[in-house]
Design a protein around this nucleic acid. Structure first.
Length: 281
DNA sequence: AAATACATCAACCGCCCCCAT
DNA sequence: AATGGGGGCGGTTGATGTATT
């Protein structure tokens, strides 16, 4: 064990910070196992890595979160809670996915659903680290949400009230630029309730359109039915997936989406698209 | 003024996944 | 095929600072 003999723990001193910074300047980021000896630090590799990633690395934003950052954080968290229950299929899957029984029954499933949550949110908040986002959420947002639920006389639930994102059909073409280099995306079959497969004219993905797509994704004021001007098309090929947001979802639900959507709901959704990948920054 | 409770957040811990061997 | 090590993650802690009684 590398931490067994007299390795320093706890808060970092300025001297240690300087040594670590000097090392990274010289040798670059990575290969953490050789950082302590080469930098002259009496710390374990993980401690060094954490200190760099969460504190010393350039461009890390300090200070309190701005309102727009908090807003985006809440929206992303909301989306991820919902998305977590979408990484499901009983059918063929090429990439990573969580079978439904797995989701419903096992503790491990909870971990998988939560996987990468904070880093994904942090990835969309420039300069913020996953640790910062997690801390902020746990200290400010989660507590408030729980107490609100309790004050309202509703059942105490150890999770947030989650507004479900409104129905919004989406069709993705194959070979989107967005998909490139994301091997867990695979062919998907997703049956909308009305069986209407809506295709979009394939057009190149511009960053502006990408932003528009995200705005639509987060818009929970308007109930979708129409496909918006959503030019996320790629090459002239068959759609890789047709997604439809939860049909007639309740305005809000308490706790996990699984509380509200029973097995029949999932039975209707046959998707092996790993939605997590859409959030990859 | 002192004691106590509460809030914050940097850092640690254990686990999991991936990859090289 | 099996396994061991490294990186990366979420959950949690505990030292420190701040508010309340």
């Amino acid at each position: 064990m590398e931490g067994s003999l007299g390795v320093r723990k706890g808060a970092w001193t300025e001297e240690e910070d300087t040594l670590l910074k000097q090392y990274i300047d010289k040798y670059g980021e990575g290969k953490w196992h050789q950082v302590p000896p080469r930098a002259g630090l009496n710390r374990c590799r993980k401690s060094c890595r954490l200190r760099w990633l969460n504190y010393l690395k350039p461009n890390i934003k300090r200070g309190e979160f701005k309102a727009d950052e908090v807003d985006l954080m809440i929206r992303l968290h909301k989306l991820l809670v919902l998305m977590g229950s979408w990484t499901i299929d009983r059918a063929v899957s090429v990439g990573s996915f969580v079978p439904i029984y797995y989701l419903l029954d096992s503790d491990k499933a909870d971990r998988d659903v939560d996987a990468l949550k904070w880093s994904m949110i942090a990835g969309r908040l420039p300069g913020r680290t996953a640790n910062d986002v997690k801390n902020f959420w746990n200290t400010h947002l989660r507590k408030n949400a729980i107490s609100r639920i309790k004050d309202g006389g509703e059942k105490a639930h150890d999770t947030l009230k989650v507004n479900v994102i409104k129905p919004r059909p989406r069709t993705f073409a194959k070979n989107l630029t967005w998909f490139s280099g994301k091997p867990t995306i695979m062919a998907a079959s997703f049956q909308p309730k009305d069986n209407v497969i809506r295709d979009l004219p394939p057009t190149p993905l511009s960053s502006e359109d990408s932003i528009k797509w995200w705005e639509n994704l987060f818009d929970d004021k308007e109930t979708g039915g129409e496909i918006g001007p959503c030019d996320v098309g790629g090459l002239d090929e068959e759609p890789i997936a047709t997604l439809r947001w939860a049909e007639a979802a309740p305005a809000e639900i308490v706790g996990s989406p699984l509380d509200e959507f029973g097995p029949s709901f999932w039975a209707e959704l046959s998707s092996n698209l790993d939605v997590w990948d859409f959030l990859d920054p």
